[in-house]
Design a protein around this nucleic acid. Sequence first.
DNA 1: GCCAACGTTGGC
DNA 2: GCCAACGTTGGC
Length: 156
Amino acid sequence: MRYWLMKTEPSACSIDDVLAMPNQTVPWWGVRNYQARNFMRDQMKVGDGVLFYHSSCAEPGVVGLAEVAKLAYPDETQFDRNSPYFDAKASRENPRWLHVDVRVTTKTRLIGIGELRVHPELARMRVLQIGNRLSITPVDPTEWQFVIKRLLGVKT
DNA sequence: GCCAACGTTGGC
DNA sequence: GCCAACGTTGGC
């Protein structure tokens, strides 16, 4: 079991949007970065823990907990000529972009990026590094535990 | 809106 | 395969 941080722009798909969906589950469409795709395709397993992160917005930060709900499968938007995520080089026989399903389990308080930066225990998190643009990044178990127990006060 | 950082593209 | 130019990300 691994842990991940997954960014989304709330203007495109916020945690409230996901909570309003059936089973609070969303296909993680629109990833067009190979490293992020490879994480989903090669490493994510059902049940992996996810920090749900809002980016490019007024209050960037972790806003909820989620889990991987389905193994990677082709992203439909790559086949849709009307989608901004359309990829002419992808075909159904040879899809280029895969994604997992993500199910939100808990909407938490906002842990803003500023608060995340305060804690030395989290200083190595990829999302806090300058210039980081990767939308999906691995989270160490120790970092996950710190966020869950120390910042959110979840009892285990 | 600025701009640093970094991924991708494409000419060679 | 190199690498300059370009486009995008995303915090501030």
